[in-house]
Design a protein around this nucleic acid. Structure first.
Lengths: 234, 234
DNA sequence: CGGTATCCGCAAAGATACTG
DNA sequence: CAGTATCTTTGCGGATACCG
């Protein structure tokens, strides 16, 4: 693996902590406001500028552009041209940026216990819900054979694939899913947090299935979300 | 475990990402400038306001006070009165704050590969060097029997204790050390990064030992620091 | 020593308008 | 759609003065 040495601008140098410490160095790179949230939204695959902006309510296009430029300079994000017929540019994590994944997921588990402070009108995105699946995946719940689910949620479709103790999720439809689950974010969240049983979900019709119905319980079982209200900080 | 629900001020509410996402919630709490560095410096034990300020060059006492107030409100840090004869107040991590440790250490390992951008005059602290020991501790290098080292470095004394695959470090002298190592930060760093052999260190007198000299090689062996120049980003 | 309070200047961030 | 330009607001760093 080879990377370029990023050339820091005067501005970046001025804001640098300038400490001989790995933690401070990391924060020089991803410590600015919004930076880690950009990385979070890219965990499930490349996104266009507009999709990123929509997924970061309140960021302002100038700030987003500045962050992307910075993250590109330091080797966390890279731009890639999308070929015809779609055209355009997408942003994706570099291999180095992808190594933030376990850190982001651990941070997410830690922060979940402090979600009590969120205001009533807090923003919701399907992508964040799906990312939480990664965070609360329980490797010990191994699947007997490789299984693929397609999740059609409020704002998009995601593919979940389990193989042994491994779980991989990416944006987009599945090539060949064992089960396709169609529902909205709220009901899907109720499912994985065990506030809505798979049976009830199907019986009441709030969740639509296509494929092997038994795979729904298997999906829910892959995750160990904290019980709401327990061990909460704030 | 019970925590209070933090009451966010108007300012904090205004800066909140307000996203239903554990990662965003975590950044609402520790995402501001300096916040995670305060937590880092508290990993090895409680500190006074002045010690914190000294360990965060450039922070400004008002900003430090604001951060500590915030971290206290959200349940990451707590103030504690120090009894006589010392008197005063120290800040320490709460149990919730202590759970940041693995995250901070992982972030530090990640950021270490980007330390190439640091300016020539970057600040150095014994505490950060010792924290790096925690980050690069290699659990597979189990010690045959519990061993305690006392490190007398440039800016203070630290106690390292290994037991099986576990390693614990805290600020302050050891009650009963197998070996006391006296040297400056630069030579100690050279030791643990294997740029200076234990034999050479002792032979040239740049490292002073008191106790079982064989324990020095054992200490160095507990850590797997990345080889400088290899797999560097920036 | 252990902070708090205040003022200044700068740079980042938010909002919005605009352009290729 | 993918940004840039501009304006306003806010946070941060630095200095200093002050108080228990």
């Amino acid at each position: 693996m080879h990377y370029n040495r990023p050339v820091f601008s005067d501005r970046e140098r001025a804001r640098s902590y300038a400490q001989v410490c790995g933690i401070a160095a990391a924060l020089d790179i991803v410590g600015e406001r919004w930076a880690l949230l950009v990385a979070r939204d890219l965990l499930l695959g490349p996104l266009r500028f507009g999709d990123l902006a929509e997924g970061l309510p309140g960021i302002g296009t100038n700030t987003l552009a500045a962050r992307l430029r910075h993250l590109e300079t330091v080797g966390v994000v890279q731009r890639r041209a999308v070929p015809l017929p779609e055209r355009g540019t997408v942003y994706e994590l570099t291999p180095y940026g992808r190594e933030l994944e376990p850190i982001l997921l651990a941070l997410g588990r830690w922060g979940t216990r402090s979600m009590g402070h969120l205001p009533a009108g807090a923003a919701t995105r399907s992508r964040w819900l799906v990312t939480a699946l990664l965070a609360f995946h329980e490797p010990s719940r191994e699947v007997a054979r490789p299984t693929t689910w397609e999740l059609r949620l409020t704002e998009g479709t995601y593919t979940v694939r389990a193989e042994g103790a491994q779980l991989a999720i990416e944006a987009g439809p599945a090539a060949a899913a064992d089960l396709t689950v169609t529902t909205d974010d709220a009901h899907f969240q109720a499912l994985v947090t065990r506030q809505l049983s798979p049976e009830a979900a199907v019986a009441t019709g709030v969740v639509g299935l296509e494929g092997d119905p038994a795979a729904l319980a298997l999906l829910v079982d892959q995750f160990a979300f904290p019980v709401p209200g327990e061990e909460t900080v704030g």
